[in-house]
């Protein structure tokens, strides 16, 4: 589904990804672990197309198309979803109108008819119940004044609306207590199937108890240093990132 070929990326003229090679197939759940500053989140943002990250060389191929130069919104329309580490607060834009906007965008990209406002609201309420999000948030500004955990739930709510195939979870576990983490993991596991792929970016193994990776990779200093099955997690647990 996703092929990353020798990707080198600069941020503010500093090389931050130094030749990343990564393949993700349908049905895979890949976890990238690594210490802070290793380039994990930069990789997530670069896959999504954030212009702040300048691709110097290498390629990103998604479903056989080179998307290295594709704009962010087109990547999203093609089925890539990034659950942001720090979701933005957008003042004055109420959640329900916003969700309907992105639903309309999704429907247009998929060339299907958008739901009526009524049907859409009903659907959103079902999702919100699964995620235990308070209905009252619908009328509030998007993410505005929400706690870290609430924001993460709103991210997953958007995932359900956008029905993506490649899901990138950038530190989804930060700001979440164990119950909320379990809840989010349950919703993601329910959504996941053999046609989709998940890329988990994390620096702690907490989430891996609830979403089981098929493969674990370790990132350090802008490169994937090591990859293997989930037994790698135990190794990191024992020796830390620096002693492989």
């Amino acid at each position: 589904m996703l092929k990353i070929k020798n990707l080198k990326v600069n941020i503010e003229n500093k090389e931050i990804l130094k030749g990343v090679i990564l393949n993700i197939k349908e049905g895979e759940i890949i976890c990238i672990m690594g210490p802070n500053g290793s380039g994990k989140s930069s990789l997530a943002s670069t896959i999504m197309g954030n212009q702040k990250y300048r691709v110097k060389s290498g390629e990103i191929i998604y479903k056989k198309n080179i998307i290295t130069k594709t704009s962010v919104n087109h990547r999203a329309s093609a089925g890539i979803f990034l659950a942001h580490q720090n979701p933005s607060e957008i003042f004055g834009v109420d959640l329900i109108s916003y969700l309907f906007e992105i639903h309309k965008g999704y429907s247009k990209a998929k060339n299907i008819k958008a739901l009526s406002v009524f049907d859409f609201n009903e659907k959103v309420k079902v999702y919100m119940k699964d995620l235990q999000i308070d209905d009252e948030f619908l009328q509030r500004s998007l993410n505005f004044g929400l706690s870290g955990g609430e924001k993460k739930k709103i991210e997953i709510l958007q995932m359900l609306i956008l029905q993506p195939e490649l899901i990138i979870l950038d530190e989804i576990d930060s700001g979440l207590d164990v119950d909320a983490l379990k809840l989010i993991a349950r919703v993601i596991n329910k959504y996941f199937d053999a046609k989709k792929a998940i890329l988990i970016i994390t620096h702690s193994k907490k989430i891996l108890s609830y979403i089981k990776p098929t493969r674990v990779a370790i990132m350090k200093d802008g490169r994937i240093q090591k990859s293997g099955d989930s037994s790698l997690v135990a190794l990191i647990e024992k020796k830390g990132f620096n002693n492989e």
Binding site: F81, P87, I102, Q158
Partner: peptide, 8 residues
Amino acid sequence: FYLTSRGI
């Protein structure tokens, strides 16, 4: 970036 990552 946040909003465009949702297809807008």
